[in-house]
Write a protein that binds this DNA or RNA. Structure first.
Length: 930
RNA sequence: GCUCGGAUGGUGGAACUGGUAGACACGCAGGACUUAAAAUCCUGUUCGCCCUAAAGCGAGUGCGGGUUCGAUUCCCGCUCCGAGUACCA
């Protein structure tokens, strides 16, 4: 039989499902290995050919590790709460659960079609109450926790209450809201229950607070910073504005430093780590107070306290709380006008317009903390209310923005270092040279100056060293329906957790998925919610990242384990520990991957998990872009489109307009004219101007999307070439981490390879036939070359070069007409991770027990077969290639040198001079220097 | 603007710590089989020169320098492309 890929693949996929071949056990003597994919959101469009790239890579790795004797956890699930299903529900009234279920079934079908070795018994769905019960549980843990800076970890809120009871807030080192006021143990005891709860809320790791949030009116919800891109929502692209609202937040800032430090201990791509570092945005500097009068002062944050003597004015953000009280009567109109102006600017304008310098003078002055000189106070929108203290000391000689501002408003520019130059043209932020015009630090360099100054400021009570982070606490509530309900109810306006025994707090049914007329979230419509009427429930739901911030632990719980009342059994967690290899896109750098690290650290602090970091090694697979094809319609003289299309190469001779054409009717840029005519009635009688008898289409690389007719479904490829070809071809396309456009130009080559491989085991009449003969040395050499190569490639995630090596190996064996069992059996195992179906079939034909290839022993590389006695290789003289020498590897270096000296041909090139130097590389002589 | 990647034939891409650049595949050209086509197989394919052939010569990894016996690989400067980020004090 010829290579009947569809029949083989379907049969094995069924076999694996029926036999639960990839079901993994938590009790094993084998070493563990955890290979994880970022689980998908099941969208209505299904998978396109770009989605499985990472899954294929992880599947190859998982299968390889299994063959290598590891107990491999390789699960899959769905991040099934999310906006699209809800938007669809709003439009059609269909419950998001139904939409989600349908989409999941479609995803599953597509995934199964590609022969992945997932343990589906461990599947998770974030929208499943049995799952989100534990998401809610983690929320409750966070609510019941505070961050102790002394022990540098999260602790139970009961510990904090004990501290308050014994010593009040005295000596407490904790992460909290800014507005905490000190109190004694007696004060605490005198507080009412309500007051106590209000105080505790300022310490809880998830808390309710009025804060400025990103409000997206079109989506009717708030968004986290990472869900906003350039002033628009990431999902849907709707405008986002700033709004003050009472909101749930997560105190991720408590973990800022640990999140930063942890990056050094994990094997992640450097760009990704860099993104997280920037997002956390640690800056080391100082807080400095500029006093206004005896009772009031302006506090600024600066990373360059050494430039303080160059500070010639202060600038406040227009929203700064002191602006109103600082504005003098005569400056009032100007200030008000300016604030009015900045309010009108949207967030977008403000970002786009970074060149215009604008501001207004308040009329007030503050005193320089060291020199006591009066310094004018201005406001300007280049100072952000949300960062630092919302106020800066402006040093025009050292900071370009301050310099521009000083120029525009005629404020003095004072040089502070003898190394500064060109101050009339621009600011010079150099740290070189020695300070001038700086009373305390004149003559000193950067390093000493900073510590001298901070010491002095501390002495004066006017400043202190301070580390500032750009990272904000994460807004946690969403005014949406399709998410996890927050397990909280309110009493007297204060939040309380519902009882653990009431979990999961199941998402109630609603009549519509829209906010209520009074603007409350959709959950306000839920009339039959349990305890509704008794309890005033929190009406917002959790954000998309909640369910994905711990899901890898749920996979550790086997199906049986999930009956237990734990998120994952302790025993399972201590066996699997962490994810050894995580594969997914880099777009989650500042979202999912940061939140997951945060929750993981928190769970570690409370002793629920073992490791400080959840994902030891991470690989970003590149995006597969779409490759759009175009036809060119000729524009007639009347300016309207004709029904004549001109081939790409000739289009410059006409006026044309380009039209996307479905990539599925184009092959090697040649349009299938018949299919094109049939595709739409208006094209039925289209005419074509051809080149060389063909219609050549134009090409462009774009994102894969339905509207561009460039979506290629994996199902079509599987139907045509088989899953094994698809898997190998996606790997063959290029390095895993690189983004590349999809094209099928080379897929035939991979398909041919698999068929050749199949033919090795069959005679000319396609009857299975292998020889029991002892293989030759050459045959062993071909085999062991591939064993070594594939091992090396897989270990460094260079799957593309492996595919090439397989092709070389099979070509060599074909040339040798090798059909020896001893060679082929090992080759099957080495290829199995890449092409699991065909290898499983051949494994069975070879007489092995069916379905057991995944537990076969991986062949051991034997270097003996690769040693060659005679090498012929080029030898250079002074770096120029001259001639080939035959030299035995077994000779010593001295003997080789002797041969060179005696070689007449080589001597000619050496002009009979004796070589100065003979260069050996790995025992080979490569160059002779005269 | 800042940070991080990248640039190799007609195309996708190999070359692991500096050691025969262009593996492998696609495409293209020629050939075999065939009445013909498809499929399959074989040969050639970086560019230029030379050529009856065997062979030979020269250039060549975005551009310009440098280190080295030797550079796609390391260093300096530049150009272009991609990603992230953006008034962060």
């Amino acid at each position: 039989m010829d290579y009947q890929f569809r029949e083989i693949e379907k049969r094995w996929q069924k076999f694996w499902a029926d036999n639960q071949t990839f079901k993994v056990d938590n009790n094993s003597e084998k070493p563990k290995y955890y290979v994880l994919d970022m689980f998908p959101y099941p969208s209505g469009a299904g998978l396109h050919v770009g989605h499985p790239l990472g899954y294929i890579a992880s599947d190859i790795f998982a299968r390889y590790k299994r063959l290598k004797g590891f107990n491999v956890l390789h699960p899959m699930g769905y991040d099934s709460f999310g906006l699209p299903a809800e938007q669809y529900a709003i439009q059609t009234g269909q419950h998001p659960a139904i939409t989600t279920e349908t989409n999941i079934n479609r995803y599953r079908e597509q995934l199964d079609n590609m022969g992945f070795s997932f343990d589906w018994s461990r599947e998770v769905r974030t929208s499943d109450p049995g799952y989100y019960k534990w998401t809610q549980w983690i929320f409750m843990l966070l609510f019941n926790a505070w961050y102790n800076l002394e022990t540098d970890k999260a602790e139970s809120i009961d510990e904090l209450i004990k501290k308050f009871e014994t010593s009040g807030s005295n000596g407490l080192k904790a992460v909290s809201d800014d507005d905490v006021t000190p109190f004694s143990a007696e004060d605490w005891k005198r507080k009412s229950d309500r007051e106590k709860q209000t105080e505790l809320l300022k310490y809880r790791l998830t808390y309710l607070r009025e804060s400025t949030v990103n409000w997206c009116a079109a989506l009717g919800t708030v968004l986290a910073n990472d869900e906003v891109k350039d002033g628009f929502s990431e999902r849907g692209g709707y405008p986002v504005e700033q709004k003050k609202m009472m909101q749930w937040s997560m105190r991720i800032t408590a973990y800022a430093d640990r999140l930063l430090r942890g990056l050094d201990s994990i094997d992640w791509p450097e760009p990704l780590k860099e993104m997280q570092r920037n997002w956390i945005g640690k800056s080391v500097g100082a807080l400095v107070r500029f006093s206004i009068d005896k009772n009031a002062f302006i506090e600024v944050f600066t990373t360059r306290v050494d430039t303080i003597f160059g500070a010639t004015f202060l600038v406040l953000a227009p929203e700064h709380e002191l602006v109103a009280s600082l504005t003098t009567a005569e400056q009032k109109p100007e200030i008000e006008k300016y604030i009015e102006q900045t309010k009108k600017k949207t967030e977008l304008d403000r970002m786009a317009d970074t060149k215009t310098v604008s501001g207004a003078f308040t009329g007030s002055y503050a005193l320089h903390p060291v020199t006591s000189e009066p310094i004018p106070i201005w406001i300007a929108d280049y100072v952000l209310a949300g960062y630092g203290t919302g106020a800066v000391m402006a040093v025009p000689s050292g900071d370009q923005r301050d310099w521009l501002f000083a120029r525009k408003f005629n404020l003095p520019i004072v040089a502070i270092s003898d190394a500064q130059s060109d101050l009339d043209k621009q600011a010079d932020p150099t740290k070189e040279g020695n300070y001038i015009n700086s009373p305390l630090i004149n003559g000193l360099g950067y390093k000493e100056a900073t510590s001298v100054l901070i010491a002095r400021l501390e002495e004066l009570g006017a400043g202190k060293a301070r580390i500032n982070y750009r990272l904000r606490d994460a807004i946690f509530g969403r005014q949406r329906y399709w998410g996890e309900p927050v397990p909280v109810y309110f009493k007297d306006g204060l939040p309380y957790l519902i009882e653990f025994s009431e979990l999961p707090l199941v998402l109630p049914e609603v009549d519509k998925y829209l906010p209520t007329e009074s603007g409350e979230p959709p959950l306000a419509r839920a009339e039959n919610w349990k305890y509704r009427g008794e309890l005033e429930y929190e009406l917002s739901t959790m954000p998309g990242w909640a369910g994905s911030s711990w899901y890898w632990y749920r996979y550790m719980a086997s199906k049986e384990d999930r009956e237990q009342e734990v998120f994952a059994p302790e025993k399972a967690i201590s066996y699997w520990k962490d994810v050894d290899l995580y594969i997914g896109g880099s777009e989650h750098a500042t979202g999912h991957l940061l939140y997951s690290r945060f929750w993981n650290k928190f769970l570690k602090d409370l002793g629920y998990v073992m490791e400080e970091e959840p994902f030891k090694k991470l690989i970003n697979q590149g995006m597969i872009q779409g490759r759009s094809n175009f036809v060119y319609r000729i524009i007639g003289e009347d300016g309207r489109g004709t029904n004549t299309f001109v081939s790409y190469g000739l289009k410059s001779e006409y006026t044309t307009t380009s039209l996307h054409v479905d990539v599925n009717i184009v092959e090697h840029e040649i349009l299938d004219i018949e299919k094109f005519k049939a595709s739409r009635s208006e094209f039925a009688d289209a005419e074509f101007i051809l080149e060389n008898g063909k219609y050549i289409c134009g090409v462009e690389v774009e994102k894969m999307s339905k509207s561009k007719f460039n979506v290629v479904s994996p199902d079509d490829i599987v139907e045509r070439y088989g899953a094994d070809t698809l898997r190998m071809y996606e790997m063959f396309l290029g390095p895993l981490e690189q983004s590349k456009p999809w094209n099928t130009n080379g897929i035939e080559g991979v398909f041919k390879f698999l068929r050749k491989f199949w033919k090795l085991f069959h005679d000319d009449d396609f009857n299975f036939l292998v020889s029991e003969e002892e293989p030759s040395k050459g045959e062993y050499k071909a085999l062991h070359k591939i064993i070594r190569k594939v091992e090396e490639d897989i270990e460094r995630f260079s799957f593309n070069t492996s595919v090439s090596s397989f092709m070389i190996c099979v070509n060599e064996l074909t040339d040798l007409k090798c059909n020896k069992r001893k060679i082929l059996q090992d080759l099957v195992i080495v290829l199995a991770p890449y092409a699991p179906h065909i290898t499983e079939e051949l494994w069975t034909l070879l007489g092995n027990e069916t379905g057991e290839i995944s537990t076969a022993p991986y062949p051991v590389f034997n270097p003996e077969y690769l040693v060659e006695n005679e090498f012929s290789y080029p030898v250079s003289v002074n770096g120029k290639t001259r001639m080939n020498l035959n030299i035995s590897l077994s000779l010593s270096q001295a003997e080789v040198e002797q041969i060179i000296l005696e070689n007449e041909d080589l001597q000619k090139y050496l002009d009979n001079k004796s070589p100065k130097k003979i260069i050996f590389v790995k025992g080979k002589i490569v160059n002779v220097v005269v």
